[in-house]
């Protein structure tokens, strides 16, 4: 068997990168989940105590459920909110406007996510400007901070620009002849949207939703600073676990469960995105 050296040389950086910064740390974390902490110092071992302990606690499964549900809601919300904007950018504006819009969608990433969340703290506070404006209309005040709503606002701040960019790219790549053909054959705009545009942009829409899920599932900042840790998500549980007694092995158990979940969701999503095309 002849090894294609040229091809493997180009693949090498990716393999080295993955080995150094993903596979290596992942293996270490898996090993760490079987270690013990003695006198605030981790001791290599091979015991199942951490797994037993974390898996048997109701608070872990409660936090797991909360995290999963909120990430799903964030993915669906982001997809729905982003779609009209993406559709407009893909089909209703000139190339120049689209380029500017995409640039402007990238601009929020120039600022730290944490800073943007602190800004939301001010805006969403009961004594903040949003409630002040609502107050002029005789509405409110509403408790938006330290709630699921606050957390969701944070998630959207994190994921929405990215989802719009992914959706726009996907929608803009649709063959216009397909849309025109649907119209010529008498399809209504709604029917064209659901039977032609969405199926054609399926990959981008699913990938956008998956990114929204992944980022929300692992986010610590929004549920902590806008949700008031009420209830805590898995990321907050990791912080709590390491804060008390330096239980990094227990935190590793939580982290591995998160990675497994994300892996399953990502594989299922890729299957859903590309599955039918292969057949």
């Amino acid at each position: 068997m002849r090894i294609d050296g040229y091809r493997y040389t180009w693949r090498l950086p990716l393999i080295v990168w993955q080995a150094l910064f993903f596979i290596g740390p992942l293996m270490l974390m898996v090993a760490m989940s079987f270690w013990l902490v003695r006198n605030y110092r981790m001791t290599p071992d091979f015991v199942f105590d951490n797994w037993d302990r974390m898996m048997s606690r109701s608070f872990f499964w409660d936090a797991y459920e909360v995290t999963l549900v909120r990430a799903c809601v964030a993915a669906v919300l982001a997809t729905l909110i982003a779609f009209p904007a993406s559709y407009a950018l893909a089909f209703k504006v000139s190339d120049t406007v689209r380029r500017w819009a995409i640039f402007l969608l990238v601009v929020p990433f120039f600022t730290s996510y944490l800073v943007r969340i602190y800004a939301w703290q001010v805006l969403l506070a009961e004594s903040g400007p949003i409630n002040a404006v609502l107050g002029f209309g005789g509405i409110g005040p509403f408790s938006m901070l330290n709630s699921g709503f606050g957390t969701m606002v944070g998630y959207m701040t994190l994921v929405l620009p990215l989802v719009i960019i992914l959706q726009t790219t996907s929608l803009a790549g649709i063959d216009r002849n397909l849309i025109e053909a649907a119209w010529n054959l008498g399809a209504s705009p709604v029917r064209t949207l659901f039977r032609v545009i969405i199926p054609a942009a399926k990959v981008g829409l699913i990938i956008g939703a998956v990114f929204a899920f992944i980022l929300s599932f692992g986010d610590f900042v929004s549920p902590f600073y806008l949700g008031g840790s009420k209830p805590p998500t898995l990321s907050i549980l990791i912080i709590d676990t390491t804060k008390s007694g330096q239980q990094w092995p227990l935190a590793a158990v939580v982290a591995i469960m998160m990675i497994v979940t994300l892996f399953v969701v990502a594989v299922a999503a890729v299957g859903a995105a590309y599955g039918r095309r292969r057949s």
């Binding site: 909360v66 549980l237 676990t241 007694g245 239980q247």
Partner: peptide
């Protein structure tokens, strides 16, 4: 300390 911390996590959830 773990017992107290576990309860704290339970209380929060």
């Amino acid at each position: 300390l773990e017992d107290w911390n576990d309860f704290w996590s339970e209380y929060k959830t």
